[in-house]
Simulated scan of single mutants.
Amino acid sequence: MSARPRIAILTSHGQPSAPPPPEIHLAAVAAAVQDHLPGWDVRSATLSSKGFLEAAMREDGAVIYPFFMARGWFTGKVLPGRLSGWRYRMATPFGLDPALPDLTVAAIRAELARRGWQPEASEILLAAHGSARGPKAAEAAEAFAAKLRPALPGLRLVTGFVEQPPFIAEAARDCGPQTLCLPFFAQSGAHVRHDIPEALAEAGFQGDLLPVLGALPDVPRLIANAIERAQGDEMSPVDID
């Protein structure tokens, strides 16, 4: 008899006003992660699709992978609340993965080389979400920026936020034409498709907007590694209240 597959569930916020597109995108990411995890059953569900996460659980013991950039409101409050009554292991959120800075540095260096830009004459604008609910989202972005700077000597790196100061438009005003705006996001939701370009246009930004970090080619392998690490953690206790 073949061994029962271990279960991993990728979850993200999704888009309440239009749930299907983010759900489809997350399923594609899960399929790519599945290629790196033979013997696993890799599923996906956004929080915006009613009942999808609960349907994906079905049984105790799953590894939950938060495709989020920080350990904030949704990963710390909303997600555990939705999983109340189940036993599971929670992987490190995508944006806090210790391997993500190196992956990003390699991508930035490759992009600069492709354009023929010298690092000391170039800039990075890290465009992040921020949050009015608490400091965790901004802290995650600033900590990430602090890890990138020593690995990219001579390159100026600034941060800007969608929902809190310094806002992206403010941060972008001092950026030169040889600037790459890097969205500190897992998926290309409304903030990335609309809010960030609008803020850049408001600032008269002359640089280029890159894809989100979640679109980097090696991200499925990074997620797979995080899931395997989490498999060795203790499962969450059942909420009996």
Rank of each mutant, 00 (worst) to 15 (best):
F184D: 06
I9Q: 03
S188H: 13
L10H: 02
E163N: 14
P220R: 00
H36C: 09
Y88W: 10
G95N: 04
T75H: 01
A146V: 12
V63Y: 00
L216S: 01
H36M: 02
G130W: 05
R89K: 10
A110M: 12
L209M: 15
S188Y: 08
G39S: 04
D174S: 15
E228R: 11
S12C: 12
I196T: 00
A28D: 13
H13D: 03
E142Q: 14
G214L: 02
R173N: 08
N225Q: 13
L157G: 07
L210G: 01
Q164L: 10
A28V: 03
A55I: 06
L79Q: 00
A137S: 13
E120K: 13
V29A: 07
A107Q: 10
L112V: 08
P20D: 14
G39K: 02
P211Q: 03
R173E: 10
F167N: 12
D195L: 08
P101S: 13
G134P: 11
A140N: 11
A137N: 07
Y88L: 02
A27V: 07
E234W: 06
F74D: 03
R114C: 14
A138N: 07
L182C: 11
P220Y: 04
L79P: 03
L47M: 15
A27D: 06
H194G: 13
R82L: 14
D233V: 05
P38D: 06
S17D: 09
S188A: 12
E59P: 04
L112S: 08
K147H: 11
R156W: 06
M235C: 08
L37M: 12
D208F: 09
H36P: 00
V63L: 00
L83I: 05
P211R: 04
M90V: 00
L148N: 11
D233R: 11
P80R: 06
Q118R: 14
P220C: 02
L96P: 01
L222K: 02
I223A: 07
V42G: 10
L125I: 01
A172L: 06
A146I: 14
S236F: 05
S12I: 00
L79R: 01
R58C: 13
A128D: 05
A171C: 10
L125P: 01
H36Q: 07
S44R: 07
I223M: 05
A141I: 07
A151M: 11
P150M: 04
T11Q: 08
F94P: 00
Y65G: 01
R58A: 15
T75K: 01
R133T: 12
T179C: 15
L216V: 02
R71F: 12
I240E: 11
G214P: 05
L37G: 02
A113D: 13
R173H: 11
L210E: 07
A113F: 09
S17I: 12
F94D: 01
L200G: 01
P166I: 13
G130D: 09
S131Q: 07
F185M: 10
E111K: 15
